[in-house]
Amino acid sequence: MASIWEYANPVKFLRTSEKVLPVLWVLAGACLVIGLIWGFFFTPDDYRQGSTVKIIYLHVPAALMAINAWLMMLVASLIWLVRRHHVSALAAKAAAPVGVTMTLIALVTGAIWGQPMWGTWWAWDPRLTSFLILFLFYLGYMALWAAIEDPDSAADLTSVLCLVGSVFAVLSRYAVLFWNQGLHQGASLSLDKEENVADVFYLPLLVCIAGFVLLFLALVLYRTGTEIRLRRTQALIRREAARA
């Protein structure tokens, strides 16, 4: 049984991800097409919210992935700090733009949904505010990556920022809850059956979430591959320069 750490070798990672990626793209595409068509055209309108409820098929998966992307960056940063695998650091770097896009999708679809429902594009509701703060954290993280020239120092510093930022993100979440109890409905998905959305909405929603997860994985693998190739090119150029 091969250890998972073998994939920490960039070259091995590239070889494996090249095999996995086509499958991921196809699966992600299939799930999204099926889930969105099912959700948009073959589910009944909500008795209160009408057809506007259908934006849930974009809003909820994007919001879930916005948080999960940050969690993935947190784990990857920890692995880099402890085991110093370059793939891990580059995967964290690659996930940030995907995560920030997911956050932006969640915010924009939320605003579009909120306008007819609450009569306003934006409200300083705890959930909305928390996502806005998450968005700021993503921006800071990416700006720090972009500002430091030496890739290893950049990986070190952004990893610590990710750890510290996570603590403050959780703190902010509680602070915001304390600050304003909001308009937003409860969680759309939870283990407690009573709170869940009805089954007719639930199944296509699950398919959409699966599609977003697969799309996220594919994008991160693809972008990590690009980052690895960039580092590999730079390393080769340096070696040739040293030989000359």
Partner: peptide, 16 residues
């Protein structure tokens, strides 16, 4: 950049 990094970290302190 310093401001961009520090301001989100200031949120809980500012709120309370």
């Amino acid at each position: 950049l310093l401001s961009l990094l520090v301001l989100p970290l200031y949120v809980p302190t500012l709120i309370f």
